[in-house]
Design a protein around this nucleic acid. Structure first.
Length: 110
DNA sequence: ACCTTGACCACAA
DNA sequence: CTTGTGGCCAAGG
Protein backbone atom coordinates (compact mmCIF):
# COMPACT_ATOMS: atom_id res chain seq x y z
CA UNK A 1 0.00 0.00 0.00
CA UNK A 2 1.97 2.24 -0.44
CA UNK A 3 2.07 5.62 0.80
CA UNK A 4 4.42 6.15 -2.03
CA UNK A 5 6.85 8.71 -0.77
CA UNK A 6 6.52 8.42 3.00
CA UNK A 7 7.92 11.81 3.72
CA UNK A 8 9.38 14.67 1.81
CA UNK A 9 6.62 17.25 2.19
CA UNK A 10 5.38 15.54 5.30
CA UNK A 11 8.84 15.58 6.80
CA UNK A 12 9.08 19.29 6.17
CA UNK A 13 5.68 19.99 7.71
CA UNK A 14 6.54 17.91 10.75
CA UNK A 15 9.71 19.89 11.21
CA UNK A 16 7.84 23.19 11.08
CA UNK A 17 5.20 21.90 13.49
CA UNK A 18 7.79 20.89 16.04
CA UNK A 19 9.83 24.05 15.77
CA UNK A 20 6.77 26.22 16.14
CA UNK A 21 5.72 24.11 19.10
CA UNK A 22 8.91 24.83 20.99
CA UNK A 23 8.11 27.14 23.92
CA UNK A 24 10.23 30.23 24.57
CA UNK A 25 13.33 29.66 26.62
CA UNK A 26 13.63 26.12 25.27
CA UNK A 27 15.70 24.66 22.47
CA UNK A 28 15.96 21.50 20.38
CA UNK A 29 18.80 20.17 18.34
CA UNK A 30 18.59 19.35 14.65
CA UNK A 31 19.40 15.78 15.49
CA UNK A 32 16.62 15.54 18.08
CA UNK A 33 14.02 16.83 15.65
CA UNK A 34 15.16 14.41 13.00
CA UNK A 35 15.07 11.61 15.56
CA UNK A 36 11.49 12.43 16.55
CA UNK A 37 10.53 12.17 12.91
CA UNK A 38 12.25 8.83 12.73
CA UNK A 39 15.07 10.04 10.56
CA UNK A 40 18.66 11.05 10.96
CA UNK A 41 18.43 13.76 8.36
CA UNK A 42 19.58 16.54 10.63
CA UNK A 43 20.72 18.40 7.51
CA UNK A 44 17.25 18.31 6.08
CA UNK A 45 15.87 20.00 9.16
CA UNK A 46 18.04 23.02 8.49
CA UNK A 47 17.37 22.82 4.80
CA UNK A 48 13.64 23.02 5.35
CA UNK A 49 13.94 25.94 7.73
CA UNK A 50 16.17 27.88 5.40
CA UNK A 51 13.39 27.63 2.83
CA UNK A 52 10.76 28.59 5.34
CA UNK A 53 9.87 32.18 6.08
CA UNK A 54 10.40 34.32 9.16
CA UNK A 55 7.38 32.97 11.05
CA UNK A 56 9.60 30.19 12.23
CA UNK A 57 11.52 30.46 15.52
CA UNK A 58 14.62 28.92 13.95
CA UNK A 59 16.77 30.33 16.75
CA UNK A 60 15.21 27.78 19.13
CA UNK A 61 16.78 25.10 16.99
CA UNK A 62 20.45 24.56 17.69
CA UNK A 63 23.12 22.09 16.80
CA UNK A 64 24.31 19.22 18.93
CA UNK A 65 26.32 20.10 22.01
CA UNK A 66 24.50 23.39 22.46
CA UNK A 67 26.11 25.35 19.66
CA UNK A 68 24.00 27.94 17.85
CA UNK A 69 23.45 27.86 14.07
CA UNK A 70 26.77 28.71 12.46
CA UNK A 71 25.20 30.96 9.89
CA UNK A 72 23.01 33.06 12.12
CA UNK A 73 24.58 32.90 15.56
CA UNK A 74 24.56 36.68 15.92
CA UNK A 75 20.87 36.99 15.01
CA UNK A 76 20.03 34.11 17.28
CA UNK A 77 21.81 35.68 20.23
CA UNK A 78 19.44 38.64 20.14
CA UNK A 79 16.48 36.28 20.31
CA UNK A 80 17.97 34.19 23.10
CA UNK A 81 18.39 37.23 25.29
CA UNK A 82 14.89 38.40 24.39
CA UNK A 83 13.34 35.02 25.18
CA UNK A 84 15.43 34.51 28.28
CA UNK A 85 17.13 31.38 27.02
CA UNK A 86 19.79 30.24 29.50
CA UNK A 87 23.17 30.84 27.92
CA UNK A 88 26.63 29.99 29.05
CA UNK A 89 29.91 31.80 28.41
CA UNK A 90 32.12 30.24 25.82
CA UNK A 91 35.65 30.87 24.71
CA UNK A 92 34.85 30.18 21.10
CA UNK A 93 31.98 30.10 18.61
CA UNK A 94 30.31 33.46 18.98
CA UNK A 95 31.47 33.86 22.55
CA UNK A 96 28.44 32.09 23.95
CA UNK A 97 26.83 28.67 24.14
CA UNK A 98 23.33 27.42 24.89
CA UNK A 99 22.67 25.83 28.27
CA UNK A 100 21.54 22.77 26.47
CA UNK A 101 21.46 20.79 29.73
CA UNK A 102 18.44 22.62 31.08
CA UNK A 103 16.87 24.22 28.02
CA UNK A 104 16.53 21.13 25.82
CA UNK A 105 12.88 20.34 25.12
CA UNK A 106 10.95 17.54 23.48
CA UNK A 107 7.39 17.57 22.11
CA UNK A 108 4.74 15.89 24.32
CA UNK A 109 3.33 12.62 23.04
CA UNK A 110 0.15 12.59 25.11
C1' DA B 1 23.31 7.11 -12.97
C1' DC B 2 27.13 10.48 -11.15
C1' DC B 3 28.61 14.53 -8.61
C1' DT B 4 28.00 18.68 -5.74
C1' DT B 5 25.93 21.18 -2.05
C1' DG B 6 23.78 21.84 2.48
C1' DA B 7 21.12 26.44 8.90
C1' DC B 8 24.62 18.51 10.36
C1' DC B 9 27.09 14.75 13.71
C1' DA B 10 30.76 12.02 15.59
C1' DC B 11 35.35 10.58 16.26
C1' DA B 12 40.44 10.81 16.02
C1' DA B 13 44.87 13.23 16.15
C1' DC C 1 41.09 24.42 21.48
C1' DT C 2 42.04 23.09 16.15
C1' DT C 3 41.80 20.42 11.83
C1' DG C 4 40.72 16.42 9.10
C1' DT C 5 37.94 12.43 7.69
C1' DG C 6 33.79 9.67 7.27
C1' DG C 7 28.90 9.11 7.61
C1' DC C 8 24.28 10.65 7.30
C1' DC C 9 19.88 12.01 4.27
C1' DA C 10 17.78 14.65 0.49
C1' DA C 11 17.49 17.90 -3.47
C1' DG C 12 19.33 19.75 -7.74
C1' DG C 13 22.35 19.90 -11.93
Amino acid sequence: MAESTPSRAEFAENVLEIVQAIPPGRVMTYDDIAAVLGSRASRMVGQVMSRSGGDLPWWRVIRAGGHPPLCHDAEALEHYEAEGTPLLPSAVEAGYRIDYRTSRWTPPFD
